[in-house]
Structure formats: C-alpha cells, structure tokens
Design a protein around this nucleic acid. Sequence first.
RNA 1: GCGGGUGUAGCUCAGUUGGUUAGAGCGCCAGAUUGUGAUUCUGGAAGUCGCCGGUUCAAUCCCGGUCACUCGCCCCA
Length: 416
Amino acid sequence: MPKLQTVRGTHDIMGDKARTFRFIQQTFQQVAMRFGHQEISTPIFEFTEVFKRTLGETSDVVSKEMYSFEDRGGESLTLRPEYTAGIARAFISNGLQQSLPCKFFGYGPMFRYERPQKGRMRQFHQIDLEILGVPEPQADIEVLAIAVTLLTELDLMDDITLELNSLGDRESRDAYRDALVVYFTAHKDKLSKDSLARLEKNPMRILDSKDEGDRVLVADAPRISDYYNDATKVFFDEVRAGLDALGISYTINERLVRGLDYYSHTAFEFITKKLGAQGTVLAGGRYDALIEMMGGPATAGIGWAGGMERLAELISPDLVPEEIRPIAIIPIGADCQIEALKLAQSLRASGFTVDMSYRGNMGKRMKRANKAKAVAAILIGEDELKRGLVTVKNFDEGSQTEVALDQITDHLSHYR
RNA sequence: GCGGGUGUAGCUCAGUUGGUUAGAGCGCCAGAUUGUGAUUCUGGAAGUCGCCGGUUCAAUCCCGGUCACUCGCCCCA
C-alpha cells in the first residue's frame, strides 16, 4: 500500500470548498442557460491526437504537461488538459454543423502535469463556455457579457479587470509575428534565455516576459495594432463598440498573448491581483481555425474557461449559500424506532430535509442534532405516541410544543 | 523542468542550546445528566516530531537525500 495521501497536486474537495464549488457551478449554469447555452459534457479522456493536433506540438501543455497513457488496447489516450479541444471534437463527431450555431457550457476536472502552486494543481476544475459557428463579433461580445454577468453575480468584479487584445486574423498575425522575429533577432544578445527559447517556439510570448531586460526590449518592440489589416480593425472595433454599449469596461493590453496555437482575433483575460502569480481567473478567445485544423468543416469558434479553484479562492464565504438545516428526528426508546423511521420518510417525501441519528440515548442524539445545525428536533416517545402526537423542539429558541402527528407537516412548513 | 521557504496530535501552534514519560488551545470520545442540545465542570483517547540514511554514548533537534506543502520562474484556469 502506497502512502495514504493524495497524489501531488490533487485535492479532496469537501466541506466549505465543496459548497463553494457547487455555488460556482450552479451560478454558472444559470447564467449560461439564461444566455441560451446548452450543457455539454465530454469525456475526461480522449485520444491523444485530439489534443496534440489542436494545441500545437510546441505548446508547453502538449510538450510537457499531458497525462498520456496507453490503454489495454494499445491506444494512446490523454486526460484532458483543457475543454475546448474536446468540444471541437464532439462537434465534428456528432455532425453538429447541421445545427449551427452551437452554444455550449460545461465544467469538470482538467489535468496538467505541472509544478503545483497556489491556484495551480495537477487536477483542477474549469467552467467552460463556447460558441461555435458564429464568425461575427456579436459572439465575442456575448461570450464576454456572459463572463461579466457571472463574475458580477459572484460579486468578484471589484477585484477583477478585463484585459482585451486582438491577435488579428491570420494575415495580420503572421505579419506581426514576422516583424517580432526580425526585431528580437536583431537584439538576440540582450534576450533572457527563456525568451531566446520563445523566439524559436512562440515569439509573441516574449511580450509577456517578466524578465527586466526583456521588458526594456519589449517596450520598443513593434506593436500589434500597427499590423492589423482592415478586416481585423473593423472586427475589433465592433467588439469594442459592443462592450461599450453594454457598459463593460476593459483595458487594452497589446501584450496579451494566448498560449495555445489556435487563437485569432479576440483574446482576453480576467485578471486579479489577489492570487499572486496565478492571477488569471478566466480567459479565452476566438479560434476560427481550430475545427478545420482538426479535420472538420471550417467553423468559427470562440469561448473561455474559468478556473474554479481560483474563483473559489476569491469568493466571499458570506455569498455562498449555507447548507439546508435539517430537522432531527429523535426516537425515545427502541419501541419508537419504527414510528420515527416512518415519520422521517414521510417528511422527506414532503420535501423536508430530515436527519435521523442511529444510536445513543436522547441526550446523545440531541447533541448530535445540535452539531448537525438542526433547526428543530422531533421527539417521539411512547407517551406521545399513545396520544397521537410528537414533541417539536425549536433549537434556536429552545422552546417546544406538542403537535398532533396528522398536523406535523403543516406545523413544520416554514422549515421546508 | 529551475530557485527559495516550511514540515511536531484531526486543526492552529508551542517546545527541546542534542539527554528519562514531547505540550497547549480547539476539536473528538466519555461521565456529571438513562425524556432534552447549545453553556459549565470532570476525565479519556489520539504523535514512528513527514520519510530514509549519516554523525553521535544518545537525534524530533545537527548533516545529506527524499516526499509533501508553499513562494517565485517557466507556463497557465
């Protein structure tokens, strides 16, 4: 038997954390559905190719972070490191081009083999939202509006800012990328060694560097907005006009880059300063090339993913609904056990939350009920049963009354 | 993958300048109270001092390694 602890970078989710997660999920679900999105749940693992082809061989996620393994049939499978590739695959597998546009939402665990830190684990949970088949900027606006609505309902917008950029269409992006390579190659000797590697793999990442020397270079680097073609400009202007119309504030960050290969046009991150190095709480962008890259029909797409652990860190505990307080049923003496059982069952059928302890004398059971934060206890003893009633004790007030068994549901109705 | 910090009871932490049975608060269990919780009082259980090795007459303490957590880098939600 190995050590009895969770695998590095994984956690048990229980208690307050489970409640917070549920709250995030439910709020997200409601918001997404209000915008007309439908739930989709894709498998937790896919053929390795699904991620390899879409994320780009050079991305860190593919090159060093995937949990890949061979199953007994010799297939290479991978625990999903993100949601979008799976959704794109589902879109193709199910022939959903017949029913465009597709507006999806989903949530669940993701897996990346990384060095754990606060807000970064090997199994973590994301909420995810996508719109497929809408090349118009309206989709960008809607997707951002959903994110803002969610974060507002989670009461988080005071701590979070939206940073926005356009990576341009392919033509603009390629032109800019080339200009960057020329510029940074000319200053190769001054680049940090991390950035030297980025120059080969993903030059735009240099813009994001935290190295001071790099930052000096970046300050004079070509600006992406100078390389936008007309189509890109028009598209980005429409997105911004939509956000302005909705009163959504944002800051343009021309150095905001996305890590994964398939992005174009709109890219965005919702960022907080409260989480240290892992400040990105929700992020996404447009990926019009993705589905075609996977071998499907050319289909536009845009979406985002939010980190539940990171959101949970930020949410005020006061906002998270308390667990429903149960009504405790306490039989007094073995003879009343069956009656208590029947009463519990019928109250549950009527929608009450009912807790019944398994052993102990009355004092023990009262203690247990109190610890379970029961609103009230129903005491069933032989005396009461003979008279066809039970004793109901209110834990908050300490008061108690006798209630006829056939009126118990009415009497308790405000606890439902 | 790289660098720094931390690791003592379920939790939060004290402590031992290397020396007999390692402590507190909270929590847990039991009793005071076998038809009444939350309050109070009394008692109890719970630790290979993260793990492995080294130095030493002796290591929870010093040294090395390792694992986990944590902060930063890389990267990302």
